[in-house]
Structure formats: C-alpha cells, structure tokens
C-alpha cells in the first residue's frame, strides 16, 4: 500500500506474525505494517472485521497490536527495534495471555 521514497537507512528486522520484514530504525511499527500486504493491524472486537492504522497520531486506536508480548500497543506511537515481535491482534483482549 505504501512504499519508501529511499532505500532503508539503518535497516533492522522485525517479525510480523512470524514473518521477518525489513524496517528502518526509529520508524513506527504502524508504518511497517502499512508496507505489508494485505494491510491490517487487528480485527474489531464485535464484527471481527479487519482494521488498519487510520490516524497515525494516537487518537483512533485502530493500529493496536501485540508488541513484544504487550497487547493493545498503539503501534503508531511505538518505534521499531531490531528483533521486535509484532502479532496482529484478533478480537477482544483477554486478561489471560
């Protein structure tokens, strides 16, 4: 859906649902998700329809995903780190892992 204007500077690797994908140090996890196909971050809790990053500034919460084990992380506010584990989040959160 999106592409980088230039080749990656300071390339790191993050794992999206187990798949290794290249990313640029300090860009947001949401920006990385928007370069994957298909683009989505989580499913909605009622209809289970797919949602993708929408506002990129922390006010819509549609970019929530499980990042390094922490559920409902706002990926648009989370900078990537080498080796980061990102899991798209499905349905409602539960207290149990």
């Amino acid at each position: 859906m999106f592409r980088k204007l230039q080749s990656l500077d300071e390339e790191v690797t993050v794992y999206v649902d187990g798949v290794a994908v290249p990313a640029e140090a300090n860009e947001s996890v949401a920006a990385v998700l928007l370069r994957q196909s298909p683009v989505w971050a989580r499913t909605a809790p009622v209809s289970c329809s797919r949602r993708a990053p929408y506002c990129m500034m922390g006010v819509c919460f549609d970019c929530l995903a499980t990042v390094d084990g922490i559920a409902s992380t706002q990926t648009c506010l989370t900078p990537v780190r080498d080796g980061m584990l990102v899991l798209r989040q499905k349905g409602r959160r539960s207290v149990r892992p």
Partner: peptide, 25 residues
C-alpha cells in the same frame, strides 16, 4: 470509514514526514 485503505490525510502526511513513505498506487 473503518475499512483498511481509508486513512486520514494527516496520517498520510505523518507517514511522509516520519517514515519517508508514500502510497505505491
């Protein structure tokens, strides 16, 4: 407006500023 593929203009501009990325279509 909740479909993937719909975003705000502000979000698109933030992606350009912070990640140097633009739509590929």
């Amino acid at each position: 407006w909740t479909l993937p593929g719909v975003m705000t203009v502000g979000a698109a501009q933030i992606l350009l500023k912070s990640s140097g990325q633009i739509p590929d279509e």
